[in-house]
């Protein structure tokens, strides 16, 4: 059974690669999207078989709820609001990675402390929480800016980069505490909160016109988050697919920057966006 599942994952991976390639070309783009959707279905079905359908009810209820919400939102959204929609979906992917990592962590720290936790796993958990958190709150901030719920202009204040640096250091220290003692739940929670705050702070200095570039970058992050989750669960399809999205997302971000005649660094540092990007 296990071989069947692994082979299904392999087929799904190939279809993802072909799907992304086809999305590069105008004529085949729609077909490529269908292919990758089919690949996702394969991966989900294989995973359901793998989990042996122990608790199918919860799984199906969750998927039904999520699927219905996703479908309704996707159908209702106005054409002009699509980038905002993508930002929301992307943020949800990020928070899902955060929860998966936190669920695995909770099992190890509280529910089954006897479970041996090696350094590789705990570092992967920490990275998933950090990247997932930044992706979520960053994407939500991007959504807020695009939809006009918060000011679309670049919000800059004195010592912003310093504050980011301090928060990043706090996250690293908390991560080290968890790495030393797996049971330090408090440090883990603080790290999660810090990652959420960081996501907001990283996106607010960026001007509204640069938002699509930022969403593309956050999309790459959510791929990386999925990839690190793969290391937590020792699951190859998560690693490969996450890496594909992570890497192709960075290239796409660069291409989008070039199309806007901006450099990635100037977009990310923000502030400049207020001067040159908003026009």
């Amino acid at each position: 059974m296990n071989i069947f599942i692994q082979l299904t994952y392999l087929v799904a991976t190939i279809l993802f690669i072909v799907g992304i390639k086809k999305l590069n070309r105008t004529q085949e783009a729609r077909q490529g999207n269908m292919l990758s959707a089919f690949a996702m279905l394969l991966a989900v079905v294989a995973t359901l078989v793998k989990s042996g359908l122990v608790t199918p009810i919860e799984i199906f209820v969750c998927m039904l709820i999520g699927g219905a919400i996703g479908l309704i939102w996707a159908k209702k959204v106005e054409m002009t609001q699509m980038p905002e929609m993508v930002a929301i979906f992307n943020g949800f992917g990020g928070i899902a990675s955060l929860f998966v990592a936190f669920s695995d962590y909770w099992t190890r720290a509280v529910e089954q402390p006897s479970l041996s936790t090696d350094a590789i796993t705990i570092v992967s958990i920490l990275l998933s929480v950090l990247i997932g958190g930044i992706t979520f709150s960053g994407s939500m901030t991007a959504y807020g800016k695009l939809s006009g719920k918060i000011s679309g202009n670049a919000i800059v204040f004195k010592g912003q980069h310093l504050l980011n640096l301090v928060l990043f250091v706090v996250a690293i220290v908390c991560g080290m505490l968890v790495a030393i003692e797996t049971g330090s739940v408090m440090a883990m929670v603080v790290m999660g909160v810090v990652s959420l705050v960081l996501g907001i702070l990283v996106v607010i200095p960026i001007g509204g016109a640069d938002m699509p570039v930022v969403i593309s970058l956050l999309n790459s992050y959510s791929g990386m988050a999925a990839c690190t989750t793969g290391f937590v669960l020792n699951n190859s399809v998560l690693i490969v697919t996450g890496a594909l999205v992570g890497a192709s997302g960075i290239i796409l971000t660069q291409i989008m920057c070039k199309a806007m005649n901006r450099s990635l660094v100037s977009v990310l540092l923000g502030g400049f966006g207020a001067k040159s990007g908003s026009g």
Binding site: G19, I20, L23, N24, R25, T26, A29, G32, N33, S36, M40, A43, V44, T47, L48, S51, V54, T55, E58, I59, C62, M82, P83, V86, F89, N90, G93, A96, S97, F99, V100, S103, D104, W106, T107, Q112, P212, I215, S216, N219, S222, G223, A225, A226, T229, G230, V232, L233, N235, V237, L238, T241, G242, L244, V245, G249, L252, I255, M256, A259
Partner: peptide
């Protein structure tokens, strides 16, 4: 013209975390 669809399409693919989520719902 394909920048946004490509971004959106690969965003859907990054939802592969769904596999991880299913694996998390076992016990506990």
């Amino acid at each position: 013209t394909l920048h946004t669809p490509l971004m959106s399409g690969s965003n859907a693919i990054s939802g592969i975390t769904i596999v991880g989520a299913i694996l998390c719902i076992q016990e506990g």
